[in-house]
Amino acid sequence: MTRQEIEREIKNIFQREFEIENPGMDDDLRETYEFDSIDAIELLLEIEKFLGSELSQEEKKQAMDIRTINQICDYIERIIQTRKVSVAK
């Protein structure tokens, strides 16, 4: 999955689930869009659906410091990479 595909899907999720149209990639989601802890939990559920697999408690905790769309994309790339490595092992 390319970075571009991840970005497109995340923007779709933001539009569909959070009514946030075209957020800036480095906008602070909390300050700019009042994105709060409840939204973060909902977002993790959407990411699980997108990846087609469950996130571990540890992986979810790692997401709690995320503030921007770019960081969300980094996070998803990291998860995908980790799973690839783990499959390769």
Binding site: I41, E42, L45, E54
Partner: peptide
């Protein structure tokens, strides 16, 4: 299916 119970 249980995960469809939303956080809210």
């Amino acid at each position: 299916a249980y995960q469809t119970i939303g956080a809210v």
